[in-house]
Nucleic acid binder design. Structure first.
Length: 315
DNA sequence: AAGACGAAAGTGGTTGA
DNA sequence: TCAACAACTTTCGTCTT
């Protein structure tokens, strides 16, 4: 049995190296790999890091860095997490404060009260922005996309579009819009995967804020998906350019309108890879593009027919 | 045996009355 | 609000490499 076949059998957990038989396996979380310490054989990729993302060298640090404690509550305005200025006019040693100090503390308390009122909006914003950031890092999105998403979200707040909608939904929608605006498109599915809400909710929010904020994005160009899909398939730069070339022609002939851009992209990559002898199966291409083989096939057929490729001779 | 192909029925979202 | 509709998916059987 080959290593690949063994790796396919998911439920099994590897305890020994299929290459050298060694039993000391190392989890390399930095690269997300399970590696044999003996021979360096990479047994599994994309393993999940189950531990915290921080490191601690002693108990004190662990206590400090651990975030698992009493649950946050959303019913208290500040989720019970904010620092409160004590009402007693004592310092931390329990001594009385000087009159001057007391006056200063009084002013601080006053401001804390005031700030809390406008805090409702800020709180909403802070939560949404951290949510955007969380999703963006799951999707490995660059900073400019996060910034754009944040700007869109802020505008949505200013226009009072959040009311009646979930913060997560709008955050997802903002991120989706930002991705498209920055020409690093992610599909709604991908956003939904890292979001806490459904795809439906995100798309509803997206349509709504896009209309209200007068964001009109051009329909996503299939070519924008090429680099990501191609690199996920481990295809060369030549294949990418070829795919983009094919797509350009397809756009000119109107083969893309009304079609899902990902399906068209998948087909173009499939053809390009075949032409340049870096053949990938329809299944592989379909998987990275998150469409079905059938869709790849249909687009592929159309492209071949209309662009005059000879399907039979491609392989 | 895996991959490619195609038919047919099903699904979720859009559109227009 | 509802039905019609196009795109896409799911499923499954057959053909090809």
């Amino acid at each position: 049995m080959t290593a690949e076949q063994e790796a396919e059998e998911k439920p099994k957990r590897r305890t020994s190296c299929p290459s050298c038989g060694g039993t000391s396996l190392v989890r390399d979380y930095e690269h997300g790999e399970l590696v044999c310490a003996g021979c360096g054989y990479v047994i599994a990729e994309r393993i999940m890091d189950l531990g915290p993302e921080w490191r601690a060298f002693d108990q004190e640090q662990r206590d400090k860095r651990g975030r698992v404690g009493a649950p946050m509550t959303f019913t208290i305005h500040d989720k019970g997490l904010s620092t409160m200025i004590d009402w007693r006019d004592r310092d931390s040693y329990g001594k009385d404060l000087t009159p001057k100090r007391r006056a200063q503390i009084y002013r601080l308390r006053k401001w804390q009260r005031r700030i809390r009122v406008s805090d409702a909006i800020e709180r909403n914003l802070a939560f949404a922005l951290s949510e955007i950031d969380r999703m963006a890092s799951h999707l490995s999105l660059p900073k400019n996309v996060r910034e754009t998403a944040a700007v869109i979200y802020r505008r949505a707040v200013e226009e009072k579009l959040i009311r009646g909608r979930s913060i997560e939904g709008v955050a997802g929608a903002a991120l989706y819009a930002a991705c498209r605006e920055c020409k690093v498109p992610r599909t709604l599915d991908e956003i939904a995967d890292v979001s806490r809400v459904s795809k439906k909710e995100i798309s509803r929010s997206y349509r709504f804020i896009a209309r209200e904020l007068l964001i009109h994005l051009h329909p996503t160009s299939p070519a924008d998906y090429v680099p990501r899909f191609a690199s996920e398939l481990g295809l060369s730069g030549e294949v990418q350019s070829k795919a983009i070339e094919i797509l350009k022609e397809a756009v000119e002939k109107g083969l893309t309108s009304g079609r899902g851009p990902t399906g068209v992209t998948a087909a173009a990559i499939y053809i390009a890879a075949q032409m340049l002898g870096e053949r990938r199966t329809q299944r592989e291409v379909a998987d990275v593009a998150r469409v079905t083989e059938v869709t790849v096939r249909n687009r592929y057929k159309e492209l071949c027919e209309r662009l005059g490729f000879n399907c039979e001779k491609l392989g």
